[in-house]
Design a protein around this nucleic acid. Structure first.
Length: 494
DNA sequence: CGTGAGGTAATTATTTACCTCACGGTGCGATAAT
């Protein structure tokens, strides 16, 4: 099969990016496949292309509504009309119409929660599924155990659908997480295509700062001096808001905050303005980033400590997709691990909550409020209520599960802290975490190996070019970017 | 744990100093139907 000419005629690309062809051939051979490809290397092609060559529909499990909307829009722009996103954006009648003619769609995007709905799943069972693709598959492991438990149910969904050919896609997963993905999807001995997570053009810097106040000042200085655009990550909505306001006050740049507390429309607007260059700095929580496809982000700063290396890597990986030099800075003050620790603890129920829940006789919907649970805590309790045990035994049993999960999360945080405190090459530490060999020498590696921060500052170019580029040109650049991108990225098969 | 908001006392009246307390991230779907 001449895949290359098909690629050319259907998608207009003249060559595959690293990994794409192997993944596609694996699927066309009928093998379940796990693919870990660096961010922005065109993962969606890995399910789109084979879907055309297979008989039946392609179901794509996607974690975010905005991601589904973006993907369907892009496909429609390319001329593919046989696409639907089954989610709560559909009105009742729209949804009915879509469900009545599911088989007519080549591509069906759907959330794990929607797949949990028996009626929807029943409809999906009636059509021929050629390919079951799970996008951002690390979410299974990262979110499935508590935050979004429907993710753990995907294996059962897959079985219900008649165990179709399956593709799991991700950009960041350790060996253990990859095993988790296979386990929960019920993949037996899939082909695995694993590429390096290394992004050589992103320099890594970790600053140890004596106090919170000094950290703020340092951050403002970075925001002033570094080449923009950039993202600053916070673990608190309030801190993100306050810093955005402060940056505006100091007249540094067009700065805006982005977090889950901002209403949906406003969030979309801010993201668009950032992509088209009207906003230069985003002060964000972890809500920002997935699916943000902007090539020229020059810096990512962490004001707070991420909860795990995977999150850190994903967040810094949003810089420098154009292959140009970019920098990731993490500001660390002794004791910063307390905040993520707090967040972790609020995810799982306390002993008191477990005991109270085991004795709960009222309406389950009221239990959360009565016990003072956060939403993840309540989900955890509800998820485990099926264990048919007497009160005390149940409490003991579920407490053990909780403890194990808590220990796992603490371990992940500890690994993050160890990297930050370590005095060996940052890049090699990250690679080691993902089971890769150390970094091969790179002149702009990290603060340990030696780094010239001035290279990333905007006064290098006296004035910079971005300010003088008119908006229409940015728009054009963006359109071209979507068409053809060159990656100077080293993609090492391991 | 560290921050910020809000309260209270202090020996003079508006301000300061100190205390206590709450808070801290991520998203789907949301009625019923086969």
């Amino acid at each position: 099969m001449d895949l290359l000419s098909f690629l050319k005629s259907k998608f207009g690309f003249s060559a595959f990016r690293p990994g794409q062809e192997e993944v596609i051939r694996s699927l066309l051979d009928g093998k379940d496949t796990l693919a870990m490809l660096a961010t922005g290397t065109g993962k969606s092609l890995c399910y789109q292309l084979p879907a055309y060559l297979l008989d039946g529909s392609c179901i794509i499990v996607s974690p975010l509504l905005s991601l589904m909307q973006d993907q369907t829009e892009q496909m429609k722009m390319r001329g593919e009309k046989s696409v639907v996103a089954l989610n709560s954006f559909l009105t009742g009648p729209e949804r009915e119409a879509a469900l009545a003619h599911l088989g007519a769609f080549k591509f069906i995007f759907v959330s794990p929660e929607m797949l949990h709905n028996r009626y929807v799943l029943g409809k999906l069972k009636t059509i021929r599924t050629a390919l079951f693709a799970v996008d951002e598959a690390h979410c299974i492991s990262q979110w499935g155990h508590d935050f979004r438990p429907e993710y753990l149910n995907l294996g059962e969904v897959r079985k219900q659908l008649g165990t179709p050919l399956t593709l799991a896609l991700t950009a960041t997963a350790t060996e253990q997480v990859r095993d988790d993905i296979c386990k929960y999807l019920g993949l037996k001995d899939p082909n695995r295509f694993i590429y390096s997570v290394n992004r050589p053009n992103i320099a890594i810097k970790i600053d140890r700062i004596p106090s919170y106040r000094e950290k703020e000042e340092k951050l403002v200085a970075y925001a002033k001096n570094l080449q923009k655009p950039g993202i600053i990550y916070f673990s608190s909505k309030k801190a993100a808001e306050e810093m955005a306001a402060r940056l505006r006050q100091e007249g540094i740049a067009e700065a805006a905050a982005y977090h889950s507390g901002i209403d949906q429309e406003q969030r979309i607007l801010i993201q668009q303005q950032f992509i088209y260059g009207q906003i230069k700095i985003i002060c964000a929580t972890s809500a920002f980033g997935m699916g943000v496809d902007k090539a020229d982000i020059r810096f990512v700063i962490h004001f707070h400590l991420p909860l795990q290396m995977e999150a850190y890597l994903q967040e810094i990986g949003r810089a420098g997709r154009d292959g140009l030099p970019s920098i990731a800075v993490l500001l660390y003050t002794e004791g910063d691990e307390r905040l993520p620790l707090q967040l972790i603890e609020a995810e799982l129920p306390t002993d008191a909550q477990l005991a109270a829940f085991s004795r709960w006789k009222g309406d389950l919907k009221e239990a959360g409020a009565a016990l003072g649970c956060t939403e993840p805590q309540l989900r955890f309790l509800l998820h485990h209520r099926v264990l048919n045990l007497p009160e005390e035994a149940w409490t003991r049993e579920v407490a053990a599960i909780r403890n194990e999960r808590m220990a796992y999360k603490r371990r992940k945080l500890k690994e993050m802290v160890q990297m930050v405190r370590s005095s060996s090459c940052r890049r090699s530490e990250i690679l080691r975490y993902f089971g890769e060999p150390p970094a091969a020498g790179n002149e702009a590696c990290c603060d340990i190996c030696g780094l010239e921060t001035a290279l990333y500052e905007s006064n290098q170019k006296s004035g910079g070019t971005l300010e003088t580029v008119p908006a229409w040109e940015l728009l054009l650049q963006d359109l071209f970017r979507k068409g053809e991108q060159k990656w100077h990225e080293e993609n090492r098969r391991i």
